[in-house]
Nucleic acid binder design. Structure first.
Lengths: 228, 228
DNA sequence: TTAATGATGAATGTCGACAATCGACATAAA
DNA sequence: TTTATGTCGATTGTCGACATTCATCATTAA
């Protein structure tokens, strides 16, 4: 272990789960890779029980999959998985955004504006990592206003999954600037408070992520790939 | 424990989770009740580790909620929770049904017809328990055709939750016969394969469950309550 | 050569015990 | 009486060890 500070209050298993999650994001652990209880227990200097609990936590977040007596594996995001996640996200987010519209107060727009300012900086710095963080913040902020804790929970889980497979791509079919512009348009739709406009823009926005970031449906797409 | 047959192949923790779930359905365990690891370990004659694992399994199904160092509690379905679950179900099911329509084959309709026949028998016997089982089968069958494993998973979890709080009501604002009729109409809509018709009927159907079974929005409802 | 069988090591499932923490009650101070 | 503090039992968190199951590979028979 890097540190042995005595923080606690959170269970060790939760901390371990966070560490493993970070490792996956950093590509130190690959998709589909098997996670061995014994090995990780030794690595983090904790017991196997603790690792097991950490696995369960990550299983709830759908970051790992475990089969009885077959072991625990990091989720493997095939094209099929990505398509499923995006379909579900579209469904959930379009609905949540529409429910959020009438609840948007002045201070909410101020908050969203602030995120957009940071995103502008991130775009100038061409920092995808920061842009993705702000992207998550932006969308989560609106979805959190929908008032349905179960929808919010599912959405959070989807965000983690999306973030995870985005981190594992080695190039994106979009510029940092247009990523910013996309969110700017989405915000303008929200300001209009017109449900149909918002619904359309959310769907377009997610389509954008699918096509321009992931590069799927490239046969219909003439853009030149940009390096990250 | 009732039996000590040596089945296995499934982890003990999974079997324990099933048993506890059954106990909740049978009202032997109340909503919001605290589940003590020690007590259950003794009751089922297993170690606390096993009970802990069972809790995690139920947590994934959202049947229990656990807070670090505060314990694990059976989910408490407040009116707010029920509203959230139904909202989510409407969203998910309407979408899944529409995606399922073009995939419905002859043998699928035969299967659904068979379920309806059983439901007719259940309605004649005025057996809510059986009707609810068949209701779950009917809806799950169609949703399973949608092709998105994540949507199916969420739907399964919702079914379990709905089934759970339905079992805890002591009366329903609907007759067994009209429960059957509702599904008959839903099936006819599917046969028509018209997306808009199906979408409408799914929403009406879930509204029906909400109003006629749960008795919410009774101010707009002149029906006399029927005993179970 | 191929398929079936059996032995061996590795990994998961389960266990009981100890450690850390929480909640409730009793006691004391204001 | 009310609030604060300290003790103690109860409960969860973590641990290391044993039991069971799985996967691999060598061996053997066809």
């Amino acid at each position: 272990m890097d540190e042995d500070t005595i923080i606690l209050q959170k269970p060790l298993s939760q901390l371990i789960a966070d560490q493993i999650k970070a490792r996956i994001w950093n590509k130190e652990i690959q998709f589909g890779e098997r996670l061995l209880e014994t090995e990780l227990a030794e690595k983090y200097d904790v017991s196997r029980s603790t690792i097991r609990e950490a696995f369960k936590i990550m299983e709830i977040e759908e970051l790992v999959v475990s089969q009885a007596r077959k072991g625990t594996y990091v989720a493997d995001f095939t094209d099929q998985d990505v398509a499923e996640i995006i379909e579900l996200r579209t469904l959930i987010e379009a609905s949540a955004f529409m429910k959020a519209i009438p609840r948007l107060k002045k201070k909410d727009f101020q908050e969203l504006d602030k995120i957009m300012e940071h995103m502008k900086v991130g775009a100038d710095k061409k920092d995808w990592n920061e842009l993705f963080d702000l992207d998550m913040k932006f969308h989560s902020y609106v979805v959190n206003l929908c008032g349905n804790s179960r929808i919010i929970k599912i959405y959070d889980s989807l965000q983690v999954q999306i973030r995870t497979f985005l981190m594992h791509l080695d190039k994106y079919y979009s510029s940092h600037q247009s990523f910013y512009d996309e969110h700017k348009e989405l915000l303008e739709a929200l300001v209009s408070t017109d449900t149909e406009t918002v619904k359309e823009r959310v769907k377009n926005h997610i389509e954008y992520v699918e096509e321009k970031l992931l590069g799927v449906n490239q046969e219909n797409n003439k853009l030149e790939p940009e390096e990250v």
